[in-house]
């Protein structure tokens, strides 16, 4: 069977890859949007935190025998905890300065973290096995779906939805949204806003750590695994516009799919299509598709 002259199996498999990539774009840009919304810091450490999530899972298995399922919770928590310490010790000091300082600081942290891991683990990747419950594939009739990939798509959708609910429907989220608009007034009401900032940074970073754990069984765990991905994720964030969570999620999945389709119809452009979209969006809507100018 063919669709538009393309074998349908090839089309669906590229769409699946697009959806998988989109899941990571969505998770990572959601974390960036959560952080930027409140802290006004463009978190360049995000790629390193993604890598830390994957390494945490790998090392937990190696040294403590802790498998994938517990790591899915523990590794992001470790990344969140580490990030909370970073925020308290370093990032909190640049809030009152120009955005550029936050960017430089988090970029510098990335170089340090990735450099340290490269020093100890080299740049080659290490494998991390998918849990045996998720090995193999299911036949969907029109294509074979590897179980683990299906899980990644569902898990990332669920996490995006939970994060959205947390921000839009809970008291914590109300503090977060209010502090985004007027942090001093919220603090004058008696809310511990410095702690709120720390928790929010930890939350956004924890999402990156979770994406890292999810990525570990599919890609090799390597110190630089976040580098290439994060550049694309920043393009996604620019396209979606900072500050809108729904925007970050929707743009992440859509661009993953667009990338997948490009691979089918015009493979030469598949690595650049997201940046091409970014340029067009910047020309037409500089604040991003969902951004408020």
């Amino acid at each position: 069977m063919t669709i538009l002259g393309i074998p349908s199996a090839a089309l669906f498999s590229q769409l699946l890859i697009g959806l998988i990539n989109g899941s990571f774009y969505a998770l990572l840009s959601l974390g960036l949007a959560v952080i930027f919304g409140l802290l006004r810091v463009i978190n360049f450490t995000h790629g390193a935190q993604y890598m830390l999530g994957a390494f945490a899972a790998l090392l937990l298995l190696k040294f403590a025998g802790i498998g994938f399922w517990p790591s899915l919770l523990i590794a992001p928590l470790l990344v969140a905890l580490f990030s909370a310490v970073l925020e308290r010790l370093l990032i909190a000091r640049v809030y009152s300065l120009d955005h550029l300082y936050g960017m430089l600081l988090t970029f510098g942290l990335t170089l340090i973290i990735e450099g340290l891991f490269r020093h100890f683990y080299g740049s080659s990747g290490q494998p991390y096995a998918a849990p045996k419950e998720l090995s193999g594939a299911v036949n969907l009739g029109f294509m074979m779906l590897p179980k683990y990939r299906g899980f990644v798509i569902i898990a990332s959708l669920a996490v995006c939805l939970l994060t959205w609910l947390l921000v839009e429907r809970t008291k914590f989220g109300a503090y977060l949204r209010a502090a985004t608009e007027n942090p001093k007034l919220v603090q004058a009401f008696g809310v511990n806003v410095p702690l709120l900032l720390t928790l929010t940074y930890a939350l956004g970073s924890g999402l990156a750590g979770l994406a890292g754990v999810l990525a570990a069984p599919m890609y090799q765990v390597s110190p630089l695994m976040g580098q290439n991905l994060i550049i694309v994720v920043f393009a996604v964030v620019v396209i979606g516009g900072m500050g809108s969570l729904i925007g970050a999620i929707a743009t992440g999945y859509t661009l993953g799919l667009i990338e997948g389709l490009t691979k089918v119809f015009y493979p030469e452009a598949s690595n650049t299509v997201i940046f091409a979209v970014m340029i067009i969006v910047l020309l037409v809507r500089p604040a991003g598709l969902f951004g408020r100018a």
């Binding site: 109300a174 949204r177 001093k184 603090q187 004058a188 009401f189 008696g190």
Partner: peptide, 24 residues
């Protein structure tokens, strides 16, 4: 005291611009 401790002493402030949050 840190800003967020002051309200606990029973002080409430309604600013001139009212400070109603649009995202809420």
């Amino acid at each position: 005291l840190p800003l967020h401790h002051i309200a606990r002493h029973g002080l409430g402030f309604v600013p001139e611009e009212r400070g109603i949050f649009s995202g809420l």
